[in-house]
Amino acid sequence: MSGLAELRREILRDVLKCSYCAMCEWVCPTLDVESNNRLYGPRGRVNLIASYFREGVDIGILKESIYTCLVCMACTRQCPAGIDIAEDIRKFRLFLDGGNGVG
């Protein structure tokens, strides 16, 4: 379990760097086709992960947001805080199944 706790810390440390600037959003293809719903954008995903770790969120909403990500890395290039957004989302998928995949 310590591996999982370490993974949680690693992801959380990175996503908490988000300052809500939204620089990542204009390049995201999934937010582009769902333009009014931040669940489908990088800023929404990053903060949903943070919320999940800190206070818990609905698992259905979480999966919709996390598994619609293309992991295309477009947002990662934009983030001024240097959050590795695509990598955090991929690691979070790993976290969701106790270290090996989907929950």
């Binding site: 999934t30 293309l70 477009a74």
Partner: peptide
């Protein structure tokens, strides 16, 4: 380097979403 994804990566989990992209 600023290319736009074709939508392919989510085709197995959501063909509909993938097609929209």
């Amino acid at each position: 380097v600023d290319t736009y994804c074709c939508g392919g990566p989510v085709e197995s989990l959501s063909p509909l979403f993938s097609a929209k992209i």
